[in-house]
Amino acid sequence: MSETAGASGPAAVRRGLGSRLLHLLATQLELRMLLVIIVVMAVLSLISPYFLTPKNLLNVMDQSVIAGMVALGQTLVILIGGIDLSVGSLIGVSAVALGLVFPKFGVPLGVVACLATGTALGLVNGVIISAGKVAPFVVTLGMMSVGRSMAYVLSGASSIGNIPDSLGNLTEDSLFGIPIDFMCLIVAYAIAWYFLTFAKGGRTLYAIGSNVEAARIAGLSINLWSIAAYVIAGLMSAVAAVFLTSKVLSIDPIGGAGAELNSIAAVVIGGASLFGGRGSIIGTLGGVFIMVFISNGLNLLNVSPYWQGTAIGSIIIAAVLIERLLSGGRSGA
């Protein structure tokens, strides 16, 4: 790199610039994600004239909110080398908590109950994994089952309707033409980015995933932040439950099913390593958009829903494979 930059003449300068760009692309995951998103959008807008219409874009933003909130929490967990399979069930059970509380105590307390449920169950995950030293896969697999079962038991296995407007408006209103829920998503990601880049806790999450022994010897609070990652994942599931309820105006105990796999997929497409220590929150957001765009595109192209799973699954594997090749085999996801 420096050799070409050091050479003289206009040709060398141009080559230097080109190779610098290539270098940036090769080293900056976020740039690559942006490039992929632009390509996907360009292709979709060429194939379907409907894709770039404001209505469809609003629809895409809408879909990205729920997936994005869950993927945010999942990112923190995967960064420490863990995994959270319970996020989908936690959406279901916290939505049911919301449905049980709002008819008697109103929407605000209902939302509080919803968030408290997700947080508390996330705390249970974190404490068992961290203090009990049980593999995250096992604990969250158990919680996945428990959470879904609680959602059925508490709801009496039926859906809850009559969602008040104050809740429904959350996904209806917009500010300067941008939906409020989408703004919430962007703010959440901005906070997460700041936290992971500039806060001690965020760097601790990376250090835990990268080399937990070195982090422990350096005096970082391993248990505190490991638990915190699962607590935040639970909280973000509950946040997703609030937006889901607002959007579909009904609470179903099966709500959020499949969110665990979609969130893990978004994080992995976003460049994170399932072994921990490597990944970025911006990458995850990119991963969420890619997933949502493709699913939206396939809908616009009238691809059978039965085929969509195959398409999305292949894209996940391809994305990780390409990422692995680009990063010289360093990414182990």
Partner: peptide, 9 residues
């Protein structure tokens, strides 16, 4: 390797 360096930092 296992107790000292943080490879991703």
């Amino acid at each position: 390797r296992t107790q000292g360096t943080v490879p991703d930092f």
